[in-house]
Design a protein around this nucleic acid. Structure first.
Lengths: 263, 263
DNA sequence: TGGAGGGCTGACGCAGCGTCAAGGTCAAGC
DNA sequence: GCTTGACCTTGACGCTGCGTCAGCCCTCCA
């Protein structure tokens, strides 16, 4: 007959765990010897190994008891559920691996590879790191909201990098990011170029996935707030954009929808 | 500016979780508005998403704070550790899947496939289910102790099934398992055959992996105990084996080692 | 015979929140 | 203006699966 220590060592668990299983009624209390010690038979070892196998699979102790008492078909069903749960958990961990890998690569988390490529491309054409970081934080917010749509609009963003005016915008923003003047005369010029670009975009793009996104203003408000936090000149730029009839530069729609336009 | 509910919804967590992160100092408390409500900026969203990404990877909250403050190389190291941990966890879950699959297939857990085949073979040659279950429980104990060695001794067990006397033993034990007489005259005959078989085995097998195993008596004592629990006639059979100079029938060694024999 | 190394029963501690309780606040509709 | 319902506030206890004392008894070996 085994003492509790021997039993525990045999099944690869701690003495405390065995006593816990007794306490919650999962493992029946065995007979005691004259001195009050618990004495276990071999059946207890088998039970304990079964319990650990199920517990290792993530089954809550409160369910293990019912499972071991159930008939074969009920048990088989439960095992199916556990297996499905294990597969999901493995899937979750794989996803998590990919996410922290991106986190380590510097370019944030949850960002689809297309966005990471886009940010790298910005660095290649000489956009300042501070501006790239701003873009990145913006994309994080958008990606958190529409993980699926975000990948579909990236080709368009890449195409825009062939537009000299877009490149000029990134350049000028980069220069400004390196000085920290409270105001800048170039802001007006920037606002003009942006407004023109947005107008052109509104003409050509027509009905796109953007419609799904612009129903929900929260992320764009967040983008505004983020810009304001990172640089005070954002405030002035937003005002200038509003003067030109656009609700900030982070959202691609006019202040008041024109009649017949997208709602 | 966001309320706590909006922030939580955006990052896909509960309000309670956000407050918890404040409490442990993981997420800084934001400014309050006139009515005492917390008001969050966009940076908080980014921080919260980072926290969740790490927490989902299994990093304890107490470490996440330090990680986010650390410099790039320290962070990269930590990410390496996390990834290794995730891989191990996935490995563990895969193992767990295999184990509960065996558990569902009826033939216990942790049993290597060779043993499962052996048990199936016993059923094929007509060994009673109760006897097969006894074998199975015995193998569970042995497999829990020597997960590696167990596979190496299985070919020998399969070979023994070609010995008519071994088959006869299983047959007679099967018959006895279906009656529940307190004693049986055939027990003497059984003991004779077993003793002869063990003697022959001791001659031929010589130095095998068994030596590693027989250094440790605990599992064999367990096997005895298990037999005693499952059938009272086991006691009589053990006595008969001891009369013939063997320490029970579950261990394959004589009571006193012969001079010059294995220690 | 004495000391190490078990065993026994409480009882509290831990993470990471969930879930009341007992209020104060805000936006909308009547 | 008043109600209603959905939020917000702090504070506190609950949950899982044990780890880890504390204070005592038991056994085995030198």
């Amino acid at each position: 007959m085994l003492t509790i220590g021997q039993l525990a060592a045999y099944a690869g668990v701690t003495v405390r765990a065995v006593r816990h299983y007794h306490q919650i009624g999962l493992l029946p209390e065995p007979e005691r010897d004259e001195s009050g010690y618990r004495r276990y038979g071999a059946m207890a070892v088998v039970s304990l190994i079964k319990i650990r196998t199920l517990a290792n699979a993530g089954v809550p102790l409160s369910q293990i008891g019912r499972m071991l008492e159930a008939d074969a078909s009920t048990f088989a069903e439960a095992v199916q559920r556990i297996d499905r749960h294990l597969r999901e958990e493995i899937e979750r961990l794989e996803t998590s691996r990919r996410q922290i890998a991106q986190l380590a690569s510097g370019d944030s988390l949850v960002l689809p590879p297309e966005v990471v490529s886009y940010l790298d491309r910005l660095r290649e054409i000489g956009v300042a790191e501070r501006v790239v970081e701003g873009e990145r934080d913006g994309w994080i917010l958008l990606a958190a909201r529409w993980p699926d749509h975000i990948r579909e609009i990236m080709p368009e963003k890449f195409a825009q990098l062939h537009d000299p005016q877009v490149v000029w915008l990134y350049r000028i923003l980069s220069e400004m990011s390196e000085s920290d003047a409270d105001d800048d005369p170039r802001l007006e010029e920037i606002a003009d170029v942006m407004a023109a670009g947005l107008a052109e975009q509104a003409q050509t793009s027509g009905e796109t996935d953007l419609d799904d996104m612009t129903h929900d203003d929260l992320p764009f408000e967040l983008l505004d707030a983020l810009a304001l936090e990172s640089d005070p000149r954002s405030k002035r730029l937003m005002d200038l954009m509003r003067e030109r009839g656009w609700a900030s530069w982070t959202r691609m729609k006019p202040l008041a929808d024109p009649p017949g336009g997208p709602t």
